[in-house]
Amino acid sequence: MPTQPQPPNDLYRPERPDQFMTQLTRLSRVLFFSLTLPGVRRSSRLPTPAHVPAETPLTVRSRRDLAPDVAEFTLTAQRPQEPLPAWQPGSHLDVILPSGRMRSYSLCGDPVDTTVYRIAVRRLANGRGGSRELHDVVLPGTRLTARGPFCTFPFAAEPTVLFLAGGIGITPLLPMVREAARRGLDWHLVQTGRDHASLAYAAELAALDPIGTRITRHCYDIEGYPDPAVLLARAPRSAAVYCCGPTRLLDSVRRTLSAQTDRGLHAQRFTKDSVAEGAPFTLRLRDGTRLPVPADQTALDVLLDAYPAAPRSCRQGYCGTCRIQVLDGTPDHRDHLLTSEERDAGALLPCVSRAEEGTLLSIDI
């Protein structure tokens, strides 16, 4: 059997192996044996609660306004100089707010600094309440709790990279841009927004582009909605594309790239569609546990309550990160990714897909 490669040194702590790559290496070994050994069946089993990362108590050290409706919160351990769990660009925290709501926010600071986490949140007047609570209730000194960090939008540091940010979608991309600049990669960022005042982190980004040749800003109030072909033309055809923003931006970029099979797209959405025409149904796990799914929640929401570390990313049925296997029952598929063959074989994306009212879906978890 060929020798398995060992993970490289950590980008931010050179004295130890890279933690993200270590986990990726372990996963590749598991997949190698599950795919090659006879009689071994692949399973979509999620981590048991015992494997969920511990909750980290945090304190809000400071808050600053980045745009008229965007605020940044700097979080520390309750002992301010105590190091926080390490993270990679593209990671996020699941933050438990004072009300008990749990919301996911991208880490937008620098992983080199292990004493603070930084998150930036846009206030959504018609949202589900989490952003309003952060803006209106959470002040310096407020104590919060977080789970993670989780990396569902990893940065592979390709030699040539194009970053496309729509509005608050700049938050997961900022650490990637910082890392691309640190490594000397050939990178370009297109930052889009309603107007110049809405473009967060302008000063920090300018410091990463002192010559002024790598960052393009596109404001809708002046230039209208951007043509995705024009956005993609900002970098060579060989560039990997990292895109984060609202559904409209990601869908337009994805459609434009659909004919360019030699170009990679890494995407994360910052909007979540409400459940349309939802009806209550039930998930049954392999151990017999039943998880009721209400009409106004997704199956993924319910799984995350039981397994906070369950994989997820776009929550729109595009990326396939949350994929699970149905053992029995008839799903109502609403995703944009799975083929007919994959659906017939039992694949399901619980972020959007459901079942008919009163239906029981047995899943391989």
Rank of each mutant, 00 (worst) to 15 (best):
R118M: 03
I119G: 03
A120E: 03
G127E: 09
G129Y: 08
G130N: 05
R132N: 14
E133A: 13
D136C: 12
V137W: 05
V137D: 14
V138S: 10
V138C: 08
P140D: 05
G141W: 10
G141K: 11
R143S: 13
L144R: 12
T145M: 12
A146H: 04
R147A: 11
G148H: 05
P149S: 02
C151F: 03
T152R: 15
T152L: 10
P154L: 10
F155I: 10
A156I: 07
A156K: 08
A157V: 00
E158P: 05
P159S: 14
P159D: 15
T160N: 05
T160S: 14
L164P: 04
A165H: 07
G166H: 05
I168V: 15
I168G: 00
I170F: 01
T171C: 05
M176W: 04
R178S: 07
R178V: 07
E179V: 01
A181T: 14
R182S: 11
R183N: 10
L185K: 07
W187G: 05
W187A: 10
L189G: 07
V190F: 02
G193N: 06
G193T: 04
R194M: 11
R194S: 12
A197T: 13
A197I: 01
L199Q: 07
A200Q: 08
A200R: 04
Y201A: 03
A206K: 08
A206W: 04
A206S: 15
A206I: 02
A206Y: 01
P210W: 11
I211F: 02
I211N: 05
R214Q: 06
R217Y: 09
C219R: 10
Y220H: 14
D221T: 11
I222L: 13
I222N: 04
G224K: 11
L232I: 12
R234V: 00
A235V: 06
R237G: 02
S238P: 00
S238Q: 13
